[in-house]
Every structure is written in C-alpha cells, then in structure tokens.
Design a protein around this nucleic acid. Structure first.
Length: 198
DNA sequence: AATATGATGTAA
DNA sequence: TACATCATATTT
C-alpha cells in the first residue's frame, strides 16, 4: 500500500519505520506551525537526530515514565520535553506502536521571521532556529504541544520535500551526549548556515 | 572555557 | 536528598 498521497502532507505511516531511517528522510521536509490565531510559520528541517530502542541516550532507555510515554505509542505524534529546566525540544515519534523511538528536530531554516521575534535581537535570521531549544522558542512550542498528532489543523505538521530536491545530507555522531556517543545518528543539510553546529 | 538556568528522572 | 541531563546565553 502506498502511504503517500498526491498531496505533500506527510502521512503518519511514513514515519512508522526505525528512527534512523526516518531522520535522514526528514532533512529537506518542512515543519509547519499554525498558531491559535491561524498564523502559519514554515521551516525547512536542516538537522535531525535519531533516538531509539536499546539506545542509552534515549529517554525511554530505562523504562516508561510520564515524560517519555508518548514515544512508546504510534508514529506521527510530537514528543516535546523540557531540558535543563529552560528549553523545550521537539521530537517526531517514529516506528511501530510499542517501540520507543523518535527523531529530534535540531534545526530549521525558517521561511519567514515570526512577527514576535524582535528585530533588534540582532541575531542573523538563519540562526533563529539553529538548535533544538532555539527552534522551539522561535515557533512557541512548549509542553502543551506534547503528544499532538502531526496533521493539518493541529498546531504542527510535516510536509514532504519536493521530489526534485535531492539534498546533500551529512551523517555524523550526535551532540551533547555522554552515552551512545558513537552511534552516527545525526544528519544535517550540507552547506547550510542554519544547522546548530557544523 | 566556565557558569547560571531548573523540570524531570535516576541513583544514593 | 543529591545529581545528571538530547541546551543556550552570558560571563570569565
């Protein structure tokens, strides 16, 4: 069965694969944020990391908890968590029901600067969403958006990259970890100024 | 290069 | 109770 329809919306079953397969496929796709008032902010996904089963860096490695429970569910929901008590991080839940796994969205290239971002913050537009905490701040994503289904009409959804767009994808090890540091599960768009680190 | 920030989970 | 954490801005 072909899960992808003629439109460009990401069907949830497209995410029903191991996170390390989905993460590079998400590079070049768009993340769409719709605010309560209908305003839409779109960003190109330029950096991702995979987290999965038997992965010591995954929040679900030990056991199911209140925070990580959505990762055990079906693909296509958000997993938003608070890190260091300050920043939020956005993940896309992947793989089959019962398999805890997700893709961390680490950086976006925004199509437009949200009106609530101060011009005088003097940050280059390409750096506004260059990092998992920064992109959540830029798109006003917090824990109230946890466990939401990624489909149009919801606060967040995904759109496929166009078929002629074949991004140059670089694969490296993940960032900020003390465990699972050798797994090459980070991907980013080559020659892109909006990634968190080169 | 070091530090402050602080919710949540894990270890003690 | 104490400590580490999928990060970032600010200060040394």
């Amino acid at each position: 069965m072909n899960c992808i329809k003629n439109n460009q919306i990401v069907e949830l079953c497209w995410l029903e694969r191991p996170s390390a397969e989905v993460a590079p496929d998400l590079i070049g796709c768009s993340l769409v944020r719709q605010m309560a008032d209908g305003e839409i902010i779109r960003g190109l996904i330029v950096e991702t990391e995979a987290y999965g089963e038997n992965d010591p860096a995954c929040h679900a490695y030990r056991r199911r908890t209140g925070r990580n429970s959505v990762m055990f569910g079906e693909a296509g929901r958000t997993y938003v968590y608070l890190i260091y008590g300050i920043y939020h991080c956005l993940n896309v839940v992947t793989d089959r029901d019962g398999v805890p796994s997700a893709v961390l969205i680490r950086a976006l290239q925004l199509e437009s600067v949200p009106r609530w971002i101060n011009e005088r913050d003097r940050v280059k537009p390409s750096r506004i969403a260059a990092g998992p905490g920064k992109l959540c701040r830029a798109l006003q994503i917090d824990s109230t958006l946890n466990a939401q289904v990624l489909q149009p009409g919801q606060p967040l959804w995904l759109e496929h990259r166009s078929s002629e767009f074949t991004p140059e994808i670089v694969q490296t090890t993940r960032i900020g970890l003390t465990q699972g540091i050798d797994l090459p599960w980070r991907w980013y768009l080559g020659n892109c100024s909006a990634v968190s680190k080169l």
